[in-house]
Structure formats: structure tokens, C-alpha cells
Amino acid sequence: MRIVDVKLIEEAIYEMFLTCCVHPDRALSGRIQDALAVEKSPIAQSILKQIQKNIEIADQNNVPLCQDTGMAVVFIDIGQEVSLKGEYINDAINNAVRRAYQDGYFRKSVLSPITRINTEDNTPAVIHTRIIKGDKIIIRVAPKGFGSENMSRIKMITPAQGIEGIYEFVLETVKNAGGNPCPPITLGIGIGGTFELCALNAKRALLRSLGESSEDEDIAVIEKKLLNDINKLGIGPMGMGGSTTALAVHIISAPTHLAGLPCAINVQCHSVRHESRTI
């Protein structure tokens, strides 16, 4: 049994949020540069340059990239051979979020869905815990903004519609979203499983490094086709036209029931923010 102090997890999560609200996915700048090289529309060029400049200014001033520092989503995989010592892990995670959002001067966006009264410290975090093999703890965090979250959708597609039904659903979702989710977007797509598993897989897919394709070759082909088709829609950066509507499509699939084909699409804005750490 490996004993891990929960304090260690709290400190790691605190630092991860402080980092990723300011510094996006390391591949983002390169992807924006690639887009600038091919984008012909002058408005698209200008917007992409602003996005690039914004990444630099956030870094120089050590301030968040985007004022929507999101809801704090935490994925934590705990090795079966780990014994946690100290306070209840979810309390420690919420402490980390509370401290990071306070110390980082991040926006507190979490409130009651009914009364709309703000909790004032961006807690509670959305926590997904899994037990894995071994004696390691893998933590992944992602602050999720709601301009893009609001454009996310889920659909129970029929087996008869099959893969064509998935293509149609994805393109329709991106078209309906237009400029609202701050394109160029990244899509996390969950295919298969049950209603809730495909939604969770869609979110999980967004944790992959930007543009990293699926290890499953069949899935990688679908990712590539969808990215290509989305970028033919002409929506462009901020919905003002152009060939850069999406930077990447990440898919996670799971076995499903013979009667169904659930599909969830989690939309991510251009501020792709996540961090990962192993303890």
C-alpha cells in the first residue's frame, strides 16, 4: 500500500488551476499560426492575430486568457494500491479550487441554478473519480467556460442512422453554434456507452493534448474527416467567415447497447485549457 497525503493532491490541483487559466494548451499557439498561414479572409486573419496576441499578453501580465475562468472540472484517477491520508479528498479539491480562484484573481462563476445566488468562491468543483490499477494518482483539471459549454449537445442516434447520423449531428451542432462558442473550436465527442457515459467521454476527450488523434485507427479516421468537413462550413473565427472553424476533433468511443448509438458533443472554445499531473 502506498500512502499519499491528501495535502499533496490539494497543492497539485491549486497549482494546476493557477497555471492553466493563464497558459493554454502548449500546442495552441502553433495551431493558430498554422491557421494564419492558410486563412484567406482578412477578418479571420485579424481575429486569429488577436487570439495569438492575447496568449502573449496573458503570459506577460500573468492574468487569465479569458475572463470566463470557468467551472472547475477535476478528473482524478486513484490507483487501487493507494491509501489516502488526511482530510476527505473532495474537500481538499474544493479547497484547492477556492484558493486558486482567490489567489489568481479569477472570476467566480458558480451559482445556484434556481436562486442564481453565487457561492463566491467558484466551488463546488465538478469532480470525476475513478479507481485505476497500480499505486499512482493521475489528476487532470480543466476550467470550462460556458460560452462553449452552452453549445454542447447530446443525442440518442438510432443504429439505422449509424455513422452517417453522427456526421450529420456533429455538423448540425457546429452550424447552429455559429460564432457563439468562440471558434476556432475544439470538439470533444463521446460515441457509444450510455446516456451519461457518452457525455462524460465527450468531456474527457477534451483533456487530450490539442490535436492528438485517437489511438484507435478507425476513430482517428473519423476525427480527421469531421475536422475537414467542419472547416468547409465557412463559419470561421468568431463566426465571421473563414476556413478555420475548428482546430481539432477528439473522439472517445465506448461499447454500447444493440438498440442504441448515443453521441455527445462537448464544445470547447479556442482557449483550450487543461493540465495533467501524476503523483
Binding site: I47, Q50, I51, K53, N54, I57, A58, N61, V63, P64, L65, C66, Q67, D68, G147, G179, C182, M238, M240, C269, H270, S271
Partner: peptide
């Protein structure tokens, strides 16, 4: 008028 979504650090300046 549209400002660039997500360009929050640049607009802050």
C-alpha cells in the same frame, strides 16, 4: 459591434 471572444487579456489593456 463584436469584440473578439476570449481576447480578454488584450481587451483588459
Amino acid at each position: 459591434l463584436a469584440a473578439t471572444g476570449g481576447a480578454a487579456a488584450l481587451l483588459m489593456d
